[in-house]
Design a protein around this nucleic acid. Structure first.
Length: 263
DNA sequence: ACCTAAACCTGGGCGC
DNA sequence: TGCGCCCAGGTTTAGG
């Protein structure tokens, strides 16, 4: 489900409601989502602690706790943080002020983990940060021989992009997803850098993309699925030149692109 | 060091 | 209705 814009949307929605709240109780419905420690330990360590704030890094949400610990949640493909339960609730956090936060996850690719200290995650730069410049992108690309699409999905290279926004950014930049990373020209790198920022910013303004799974904490869908150019549009006309959109497989993931517009 | 394929799960949608 | 297949917003691993 969730890439940077979706995770950021969840963060913005839940922050005001969970900040300053005490975790009164933790109920674990399915222990498979809890990583690193036993469900008993998890519940014991968390109960009574206070949530100071919520941050997003890449596709991770981290809850900073008063004790100095960090509760880190990755939504995987179908993870949700909700204020009302759905069919697939796996963990229940009872908070002070009569608020309950539900972690729901159909496919169980998500992760809930408790760190004793600030988590060190092996992640590339944030695409919406000032640090992510054409110059930095050029530097990162220069060492890599793999295709540009797969590289954009690699979180150690650049963090926050997923399958939707990788395809969309490459379309907007007019770059063929099969191109070897180190063969991109300077002007293409500049375009790609700009389009990544543009696509993510726009998606964020629409509160993310919702096909079937993504909803925010209030259960509301995003709106960016109406703005997609190529993603999941195989056979449909390219919005720019009307050539049918193609779907290919790269690193076991579907890639959508226009064979005419993307060189 | 770098790259790819498969594994982890459950469900929706389609053709027959 | 049902079966079998393909598809799905992600990450980690095993192996070349």
């Amino acid at each position: 489900m969730p890439e940077l814009p979706e995770v950021e949307t969840v963060k913005r929605e839940i922050s005001p409601y969970v900040k300053g709240k005490i975790i009164r109780d933790v109920k674990i419905i399915d222990a498979r989502v809890i990583k690193g420690i036993s469900p008993r330990e998890f519940k014991k360590k968390l109960t009574g602690d206070t949530i100071l704030n919520v941050e997003r890094r890449a596709k991770y949400l981290s809850f900073k706790l008063k004790s100095g610990k960090y509760l880190v949640i990755h939504l995987g493909m179908t993870g949700r943080l909700l204020f009302s339960p759905d069919k697939y609730v796996k963990v229940i956090f009872k908070l002070s002020g009569n608020k309950t936060l539900y972690y729901s996850d159909l496919r169980l690719f998500g992760k809930v983990k408790l760190y004793n200290h600030y988590p060190i995650l092996k992640l590339g730069p944030e695409p919406l940060s000032k640090e992510f410049t054409p110059r930095l992108l050029k530097e990162l690309l220069s060492k890599r021989k793999t295709n540009i699409k797969s590289l954009l999905l690699d979180q150690r290279f650049l963090s926050g992009l997923g399958n939707i926004y990788a395809s969309e950014s490459l379309f907007c930049a007019g770059i063929d997803p099969r191109r070897k990373a180190n063969t991109l020209k300077d002007y293409e790198i500049k375009n790609l850098n700009r389009e990544i920022k543009k696509v993510l910013t726009k998606a964020l303004a629409h509160k993310g993309t919702s096909f079937s799974w993504f909803v925010d904490a209030e259960g509301k869908k995003g709106g960016f699925q109406l703005k997609l150019m190529v993603y999941r549009k195989e056979g449909k006309p390219c919005p720019r030149c009307k050539t049918p959109i193609k779907r290919i497989i790269q690193s076991n993931r579907g890639t959508y692109y226009c064979p005419r517009c993307q060189k």
